[in-house]
Simulated assay, not measured.
Amino acid sequence: MLKMLEKNSLRGVSVVIPTINRAAVLVKTVRDMLNQQFDDYEILIVDQSDEINAEVLDLIKQIDQPRIRYFKANFKGLPQARNFGWRHAAKDVVLYIDDDIRTGTDLVRSHFESHIKTGADMVAGGIDEAGDKPSHLPTGSFNWWTATPIANFCATTASWCIHGKGCNFSVRRSALGTVGGLDEVLSIGAALYEESELALRLYKAGKRTWFEPSARLLHLAAPMGGCRVTKDWPRYMFGLAHNRSILIFRHLKPWHRPTALLRLLMLGLSYSRLDQSPRPLLATLRGLTAGRRAAAMSPLNAELDAIECTSC
């Protein structure tokens, strides 16, 4: 009875949009979110850009019932922005989307109703991206032998899973509080696996994740801005190795680690071939060492400062 009451007493959705230096695509994303066919939701934009987005401020002034809260962050980092968002959320479900998505009018409703219907603590939404094709692998699964999250979020069959993808997943705010939010140490490089590491901590804490394909969006994967690391392969491999090592040493059983570490070293070697130098492999080794140290520490969730703007 208590579980049923808890499922049916959720109050609304806080949509958190981390963004950095993507003014043009952000405005289109925000317009899509303002068109949602759902009443009880708010939009929190956590902007780490160099300049304030004047067009978003104009949107805020135009709407009759202020639904958008716009924060100009004094920090950098994707997990930092996600943590700031849920700590300032007023609703019970926190929906994370990227700043470069397009979606129909039912995204927020589909996430909320999936939490109600299934009792899930996390809901992974459906994602369409260029080049994606459904695979035979279970959606949102995790390969423990290689420490590799399996995506397949373009699939159309709902199911229980282990993790969601950063551009479209929602979590109960109470569950985020239970596990301490995202680990801000994972902001290194392209912030790879930051949402996977959160999902694995939820999984270990007995929380459940549901894949809901109807909670769907198109991820544009915009090339500008964001936290991408392109062509600087040593830097990319340091961040990848650091963050994957946290998965390996924090979440894998001892008998899974040898093959996962071998897979990581093979990745470093392949990027050294691409770079035609040993630097990516050496960066992989450095990242592995630093990540192993970080895995032994508690997840970082620091005090973060931002200015809430209405007419900044």
Rank of each mutant, 00 (worst) to 15 (best):
H111E: 02
G180Y: 02
N243Q: 05
T230N: 10
L182M: 11
E194Q: 09
A81Q: 04
H242E: 03
S196N: 08
H163C: 07
L10A: 03
I116E: 05
A290P: 00
H88Q: 08
A191L: 02
L137A: 11
C309H: 08
A89P: 03
R11I: 06
G287P: 03
F71Y: 14
V229A: 03
S187F: 06
S110P: 07
G164F: 02
L192W: 12
W255Y: 09
W210C: 09
A23V: 09
K117T: 07
S114C: 02
Q62H: 14
N8T: 07
N8P: 09
S135K: 11
L281C: 05
I188V: 11
N83M: 00
K133Y: 12
A221R: 10
T310K: 11
A90W: 10
A294R: 01
P134Y: 03
T289C: 02
G77Y: 06
A283N: 01
M224T: 15
L176W: 03
Y271L: 05
Q48T: 14
K253F: 14
W255S: 01
L274G: 05
S141H: 01
H88R: 09
G287Q: 03
E42D: 09
T105I: 08
S114G: 08
G239A: 01
L264E: 00
T157P: 07
W144D: 10
I97N: 13
S14E: 02
T139N: 06
W233K: 06
C167D: 13
E6M: 13
V229T: 03
I116T: 04
G140S: 03
D39R: 12
G291A: 01
V185Q: 12
H136F: 13
L218M: 06
I17S: 12
M1R: 13
L202I: 04
A151K: 15
R279V: 08
A222F: 05
R208Q: 15
L218P: 01
T29W: 08
A120F: 02
S196D: 12
I101C: 13
D39Y: 13
G12C: 07
G104E: 14
I63E: 15
E129C: 15
S277G: 10
Q62K: 10
D32H: 15
V229D: 03
F249W: 02
R201L: 08
I101R: 14
N21T: 14
P223N: 11
F249Q: 02
K7T: 00
M297P: 09
G189T: 00
H256G: 04
S9Q: 10
Y203R: 12
D39S: 15
S270V: 05
I63K: 13
Q37W: 14
L281K: 05
I45N: 12
A158D: 14
M1A: 15
D232Y: 04
M237C: 03
I17W: 12
A221F: 07
L2P: 14
S49W: 09
R31D: 14
E195D: 08
G131E: 01
M297H: 07
R235Y: 14
I97P: 09
V108Y: 04
A221Y: 06
A73N: 07
W145P: 00
I188G: 04
N143H: 06
G164T: 02
P223W: 05
S174L: 10
R286E: 13
P234M: 02
K165D: 14
L281H: 01
R69F: 09
S110E: 15
S311Y: 13
G131L: 07
V108T: 04
R257I: 00
C312Q: 13
P79Q: 08
G181Q: 05
K133R: 08
N143S: 06
